[in-house]
Design a binder for these strands. Structure first.
Lengths: 206, 206
DNA sequence: TATAAAATACCCCAAACGAGCTATTGATTC
DNA sequence: GAATCAATAGCTCGTTTGGGGTATTTTATA
């Protein structure tokens, strides 16, 4: 079996070094590169012979998700596995959008980790059953996740109205409009107006 | 000349009855069916010997546009003429997408209306010159006013990046990105991100 | 070779925005 | 009857945005 070349991006020294040793000492695996932050990883990985990157999400500076997003564009032959303590919906969803192929919790034991790395390398997408469930649930939304009111608000936003204008237009308090907008962002997994409108149009919600 | 069988969908009693009388009393035309709402029209028209439907847009409950969309699927031998007081771009565009063959304003005089019904029956698409103009304009390939750089910036904005992120992404000063954005707004005649993205997508600029 | 775009970069400032909260009411749904 | 969701309304705070400028360099193009 050919050797799988791994890189680690992880700010915790102990975890990074432990993983480094375990992975590099295993047959069929080579782990010569480990980075403590997103920036150094982004700078180096495009020039390295790497097959799989283990990416922590919580990093100082840019997050692992951002690093994945940027690296994905330059290195589409590399697979990314998110390795994290968080398992909230937003992190999972964002990671997958950013181009991650797998999403594992840090308490995954080393032997399983090796198996999962092999799975990714072979074109699979390993993830724990809890995480798989969340993903199924998030993709299961066939119908419009937005309520009627939210859709109405989003349409008005797309016409260039600010929230005060929207409020006046539909006879609501600006505070309520703001709440609706926040809920829209949350449901569409975005953090600003621009992306919300883009996604909504692409998904034919408005 | 063979008789053209007409159905009317119109919630205003007076207008509906007036049209009913005028159309059914004219040589070559027969108007035996008139409905006050979309629902009853959708239920009955598929089983009726009808050639042309005059459809009001503003109806209680489902709109005339929705009714047209649904009826079109079942009855592709029937032609639909939208008859409305609205002449806004969205109504027109949606009506055409829904399958309407003609789009007339309610102030069209009865004699002209008969002429237009005949036109539709003969495969034409009658509409007032104002409406025709709007359609021409909406279909006109508006040449992209944005430069390549501006398009690039707008695409990144639509992904939710703020101008600092955009700047880093394409190795520019944030000041320059801001300038580009201001120029984009100016060219698209908008004054914020939301409307810029909406317009750009609708015009297929991004 | 003018002249016009396009691309680059910088300044100030007020208004708008997004994130993080709490909270009440009325429907649904389990 | 409890729980959840939608809709409503409010608060604070720091960050981002958009509008108003100015200015240089490069690239087309007339």
């Amino acid at each position: 079996m050919e050797t799988i070349h791994i890189a680690i991006v992880e700010d915790d020294n102990e975890i990074r070094q432990t993983l480094h040793l375990i992975l590099d000492g295993s047959t069929g695996f080579s782990c010569k590169y480990a980075f403590p932050d997103a920036e150094s990883a982004i700078a180096s990985i495009p020039n390295l012979p790497v097959d799989v990157v283990l990416m922590d999400i919580d990093l100082p500076g840019k997050t692992g998700i951002e690093a994945t997003r940027e690296l994905r564009k330059k290195c589409d032959h590399i697979d990314f596995i998110m390795l994290t303590v968080q398992s909230d919906d937003d992190s999972i969803f964002e990671s997958l959008c950013a181009g991650a192929s797998g999403y594992l919790l840090k308490d995954t034991n080393p032997v399983d980790l090796l198996v999962h790395i092999k799975e990714v390398y072979d074109g699979g997408s390993p993830m724990s059953s809890q995480i798989a469930r969340r993903i199924i649930n998030s993709f299961r939304i066939i119908d419009n996740p937005l309520s009627e009111r939210e859709t109405e608000v989003l349409k008005l936003l797309s016409q260039g109205l600010n929230y005060k204008d929207v409020a006046e237009h539909i006879f609501l308090s600006p505070h309520t409009v703001k709440t609706h907008i926040k809920n829209i962002y949350s449901k569409l997994h975005v953090n600003n107006r621009a992306e919300a409108i883009y996604k909504a149009i692409k998904q034919k919600l408005i």
